[in-house]
Design a protein around this nucleic acid. Structure first.
Lengths: 212, 212
DNA sequence: GTTTGAATTAAACGTTTGTTTAATTTTGCG
DNA sequence: CGCAAAATTAAACAAACGTTTAATTCAAAC
């Protein structure tokens, strides 16, 4: 794993902030340099190019997120229900605590066709699905989950719902002119609603008997 | 409603294609002009600026989408279940048939804070939620849906799932090197999975009794 | 204190960008 | 046809971009 100096981390932090707020393309190296209080040449000096800086950001967050997700696999849970709830918790908490990176990734992922970023995202999508699959199969083996369940569907719902909820929050908060503390409180409130209802919905879907 | 000449529509079509594929910022006016086989000055001549062209695209699709969604309100459905399923159908079909615009909108919406585009998107988000709310309340009045249901949650799941599924499809199709016909078939297949399971999941969530 | 390599800087580079200009062609109408 | 308005063009514009250069400062080792 590559180590970064304090100054490099300072540039990366600033870049992530601006990339997520304004978008990668609309953020110039001069913007980053000014906000991070360093010379414009430092970005090229440390990272090689603007795109390499973006890749460094991705690598940095990806390694953290994937290990977080992988660790769930080794946890011993007492029931399939707890497994599902645990996964939902981890997804929500990870996406929420890394909102900036998540926003940046979601935005840039939509125009990628190849390259290192594409590969990283594809790998993460696959891992996400594997994780959901494991939990579902576990519940099916125990006979508590119905058999005709779609894993690709479930993973899409999991990630998609959280992202859409966060996007909606941004809009509502901006529209209601919420700032700082009250904005964060609003988002936190919404996320807790999401957490509770997503769990309930997943359990309902996984155990639902259409013959009432 | 503003009318557009054939040439203007040709530019708008090409712009939508390129904007959705490469992103708004990475698409130059020269790209559009070349692909649409017109002079670079024509974009400014007809639309005023690149951003105005984007706004024209938004207005064009928004007016269509919102009227489509509004029309559901006036439909007579025989049951609350059918209402929910009808909404899911319309959302999926609308998002699927307007994939390019949807992709463009999702991407650009994430970096908006104000302006006409922001207002349009906010209005659409509100309308979406109203639509879901109407169907849910209808089912609750009839006593077939449980009372403690979150509407903000449901609308996030609705839109978020479809978009995430489409995004995943793009990645998987690209990764499997699917092109043209087979790629469309793959997406269509996944969308039908989404349709069936989203309906089942919503009904399960809306009627689920946690006391088994 | 001198030396050596890294860190930092201001300036310049060439390219691309969105937009405008000014000239030319095309179109529609009396 | 003749003419006015619209459409179309090539060229030019200034601004912003990512990146590089070359000079200078800094820090640590000897």
């Amino acid at each position: 794993m590559t180590e970064y100096s304090e100054k490099q981390l300072q540039i990366m932090d600033t870049a992530l902030k601006l990339f997520s707020e304004k978008g990668y393309d609309k953020t110039s190296i001069r913007d980053i340099a000014h906000a991070a209080d360093v010379n414009v040449a430092m970005v090229s000096y440390y990272f090689g190019s603007k795109e390499k800086l973006l890749e460094a950001l991705f690598k940095n967050h990806f390694s953290f997120i994937t290990t977080t997700l992988e660790n769930i696999l080794y946890e011993k849970e007492s029931s399939a229900f707890e497994k599902v709830e645990r996964i939902i918790d981890v997804f929500i908490d990870t996406l929420f605590s890394r909102q900036k990176f998540n926003q940046l990734m979601m935005r840039e992922s939509s125009v990628l066709n190849e390259g290192p970023l594409f590969d990283m995202i594809l790998e993460m999508k696959t891992k996400n699905r594997k994780l959901v699959e494991r939990a579902v199969k576990s519940g099916q083996r125990l006979g508590v989950f119905r058999k005709d369940v779609s894993v690709v569907f479930l993973s899409s719902v999991m990630i998609g719902s959280v992202n859409q909820m966060l996007a909606n929050c941004r809009y509502e908060a901006r529209s209601a002119k919420l700032e700082g503390e009250s904005k964060e409180a609003f988002k936190k409130e919404r996320i807790e609603i999401l957490r509770i209802h997503l769990k309930r919905m997943f359990i309902a879907y996984l155990t639902f008997d259409s013959n009432k």
